[in-house]
Design a protein around this nucleic acid. Structure first.
Lengths: 224, 224
DNA sequence: TCGCGTCTCACCCCCTGGGGTGAGACGGGC
DNA sequence: GCCCGTCTCACCCCAGGGGGTGAGACGCGA
């Protein structure tokens, strides 16, 4: 089964070039193109491509807005969107990925990259330009440098770490005591030791510390 | 200038194969190899490669631990580490990236991918297997849906939000008062209103709320 | 065997922080 | 004009949390 691709770019030359390149592949079929964001959205709903190659900068409606509309469609027949850009402007990257774009590619990438990129996103995977990947990783983990975590947090005993984890979920001392089946006084002792070891003043700072070190994470699924 | 590469893998066949493949490139030079994690660390310090190809599963010390030690070296002459794995086990991925690995590649990737991967990480960029990229993106953004933020937090007045932001940095009431040039009593009023509006019990829960809604973010650079 | 670390708990002090009520000043909208 | 929301501040109350000291029980390794 061939991969149906729609190309959205304001430069006719670019559309033609990409179309020629991709149409030369047996498993890829260009089903349509669009010179601006508005057309990209309408053509996508009309032609139902598997993959939309979307330029970021376009007249009437930019690629981000167009991608947003396309990706807000019901999941069932929603196409994958691969963003293309001449420069790697980071703000756009995060915005596009947040909206659910499957990848971000620089236009000066080797032709082979574009072809394999189409296959990858069609398969449901994602793909980023290397420089973009680097920044995404940093963005994703900058909050939790491994050193900061180990350096201070590993001074804690398992029990103390467990207590800190509960503090970081907003539990009071009596609640923690109930959760761990120990007396409130015991909890207070643990809490005090945690504060002393991590040089914290109160539980509010402990919560900050837990998030900043990565002990707990915003949107953490382990909040059972 | 050639890229000096060290290969760490417990299977001699794999080492030989990768070495042959990479040595065939003009700009890449295999300077050494290691059959386990311990050797990987010692050889890295001895040979100072630019890039270390590190298998995840190895005897005596696994690739993650070895990568951790290598990446905890002083920044100046620290090599890039590209993790290799047969299966894409996600736990390992995050752990490795958290520690500062430059990428994660599946061993069954096309040979060309490995070669370009070495060049990419040597250049300071990063590279992930497509399936890994997809999950990293999800991981990176699932925690901060734009919607969750507006839901409850927009009931706060600007001043209250400002106070919450300071609470979320671990400041006490007197400290917040000093920061905002108001009396401590005023701060207490604001704090009380924030708690009432967001149904919070104490500042620890307020900190949790601030992180979970995305008002503040772990590793937030705006911590001046 | 003797330590050492951890986990457990108790009693003390007392200050910060959370809760209630009330109120003056300022600004914008009806 | 008036009202309403916001920001400011004050006084009160007191429970909970943070800080110190001490101590018994257990397991582990030297």
């Amino acid at each position: 089964m061939t991969i149906k691709v729609l190309i959205a770019d304001d430069q006719a030359m670019v559309r033609a070039g990409f179309a020629a390149l991709l149409n030369a592949q047996e498993d890829i079929d260009i089903v349509g193109d669009a010179p601006d964001g508005v057309a990209a959205v309408t053509e996508t709903t009309r032609l139902r491509p598997d993959v939309v190659l979307m330029d970021v900068r376009m007249p009437t409606m930019d690629g981000l807005e167009a991608a947003k509309r396309i990706l807000s469609a019901p999941e069932a027949r929603r196409p994958r969107v691969l963003m293309l850009t001449t420069f790697d402007i980071d703000d756009y990257v995060y915005e596009a990925l947040r909206m659910g774009a499957s990848g971000f590619l620089l236009k000066d990438a080797p032709p082979g990259d574009l072809i394999s990129a189409v296959r990858i996103v069609a398969a449901g995977d994602a793909l980023l330009a290397p420089s973009v990947t680097r920044r995404l990783i940093e963005e994703c983990f900058k909050a939790r440098p491994a050193l900061r975590r180990s350096s201070r947090l590993d001074a804690l005993t398992p029990r103390e770490e467990e207590v800190l984890r509960l503090i970081a979920r907003g539990l009071s001392n009596p609640e923690i005591a109930a959760a761990l089946f120990v007396s409130e006084q015991t909890v207070k002792t643990h809490v005090g030791k945690v504060f002393a070891k991590l040089e914290l003043r109160d539980r509010a700072q402990a919560v900050v510390c837990a998030y900043e070190t990565g002990l707990v994470t915003a949107g953490d699924p382990r909040e059972s």
